[in-house]
Structures are given as C-alpha cells and as structure tokens.
Simulated assay, not measured.
Amino acid sequence: MEKYLNNVGDIQFDSKIDDPNFKICSPNQSFQYYNFSKGFQYKGEKYEMLKIWKEKYTTNQNYKVESGYITVRFLVNCEGKTGLFRVQQMDQNYTEFSFNEDFINVILKFVKELDGWIINEYKGQKVDYYQYLTFKVENGIVKEILP
C-alpha cells in the first residue's frame, strides 16, 4: 500500500540527500510562506538576500550559454533553520532543463547558507513552513531572485 503525504507539495524526507539532524517541528501541518501576513519571510527581506548574493557570489564564465529558471524549494522549521532542499530546473520556455551541476551547487550553497529566516506562529505555536526561491538566469548570470 502506498502512503500519501498530508498535503500536495509536502516534501518527504530522503535519507540520501537530507540532513538526518534537521528537525521537523510539525510534520502533520503544512504552511506556505505566503500564509503569513509579514510579507517576505526573511530578515531584511529580499533586499538583504540580494545584497548577500552580490557580495559573496560571482558568475563563472563556464555558465555563459545557460538561461532559464532554477527553483529551490525547502522547509523552514520552527527554529528558523532550513532543510529538505529540492531543486527544479527549466529553460526559458518552462521546459525541463539541466543546468551545469557546478552552477546548481553554487545556488544551493547560497540558499543553504541563508540564516535570516523568520520564525512563524500559528495559534500561538511556532510552526514549519515551505519557502521557495527562483533564480532567473540569463546567459549564466543570475538576473533576479524571486519571489
């Protein structure tokens, strides 16, 4: 018998790629970052995140020909820590695509190092929530980080 997830879009723990020490505080309740009224769920908001990207990460010439979108979806737990990272890649026509693996690793490293995620509450209890970042890439250069 196949086990169904509680909600569409829930990320199931995978021992091959996920940190076994990552704490999931509310496994039976899913929230999305937009369920909260605080806007973008990062201290300093998107401005701070873009500042970190520009200060610490540069574009490698090996990625010149690649354009499209890279989305990293993950869970922010009740302690503001992140885990369960999943990557989706597509070209400019929204068709499945594979970017250079080193480039993906740079983006994943950046997302994993972000440590300003806001802790959210629901009915007085700290809860986990799903967050995503989409990187718009043109000729190997990150032009925008969404949402």
Score class of each variant (00 low, 15 high):
Met1Pro: 08
Glu2Thr: 10
Lys3Ala: 12
Leu5Val: 13
Leu5Thr: 12
Asn7His: 12
Asn7Asp: 10
Val8Leu: 15
Asp10Trp: 04
Asp10Ala: 10
Ile11Gly: 02
Ile17Ala: 11
Ile17Trp: 11
Asp18Tyr: 12
Asn21Gly: 07
Phe22Gly: 09
Ile24Met: 11
Cys25Trp: 11
Asn28His: 14
Phe31Asp: 10
Gln32Pro: 03
Tyr33Val: 11
Tyr33His: 12
Tyr34Cys: 07
Ser37Gly: 12
Phe40Ser: 02
Gln41Ile: 09
Lys43Ser: 14
Lys43Ala: 13
Gly44Lys: 05
Gly44Glu: 07
Lys46Ile: 13
Tyr47Ile: 09
Tyr47His: 06
Leu50Glu: 12
Ile52Gln: 13
Ile52His: 03
Lys54Ile: 11
Glu55Lys: 14
Glu55Ser: 14
Lys56Cys: 03
Lys56Pro: 02
Thr58Glu: 14
Asn62Met: 14
Lys64Leu: 14
Lys64Cys: 06
Lys64Arg: 13
Val65Trp: 08
Val65Leu: 10
Tyr69Pro: 00
Ile70Arg: 02
Ile70Thr: 03
Val72Ser: 03
Val72Asp: 00
Arg73Phe: 04
Phe74Thr: 04
Phe74Ser: 07
Leu75Met: 13
Leu75Cys: 10
Val76Pro: 05
Glu79Arg: 07
Glu79Leu: 09
Glu79Trp: 04
Gly80Cys: 08
Gly80Val: 14
Gly83His: 09
Leu84Ser: 04
Leu84Met: 14
Val87Lys: 04
Gln88Leu: 11
Gln88Asp: 12
Gln89Ile: 10
Gln89Lys: 08
Asp91Trp: 09
Asp91Tyr: 05
Asp91Ala: 09
Asp91Arg: 06
Gln92His: 04
Asn93Cys: 09
Asn93Gly: 10
Thr95Lys: 15
Thr95Glu: 10
Ser98Ile: 02
Ser98Glu: 13
Asp102Ala: 12
Asp102Lys: 07
Asp102Gln: 13
Asn105Arg: 11
Asn105Leu: 08
Val106Ile: 13
Val106Arg: 03
Val106Lys: 06
Ile107Arg: 00
Leu108Cys: 05
Phe110Val: 01
Val111Tyr: 05
Lys112Cys: 06
Leu114Ala: 00
Asp115Thr: 00
Gly116Gln: 06
Trp117Pro: 08
Ile118Val: 15
Ile119Leu: 09
Asn120Gln: 15
Gln125His: 11
Lys126His: 09
Asp128Tyr: 01
Asp128Ser: 06
Tyr129Thr: 01
Tyr132Thr: 02
Thr134Lys: 10
Lys136Arg: 05
Val137Asp: 01
Glu138Tyr: 01
Asn139Thr: 00
Gly140Val: 02
Ile141Gly: 01
Val142Gly: 01
Lys143His: 04
Glu144Asn: 15
Leu146Arg: 03
Pro147Gln: 10
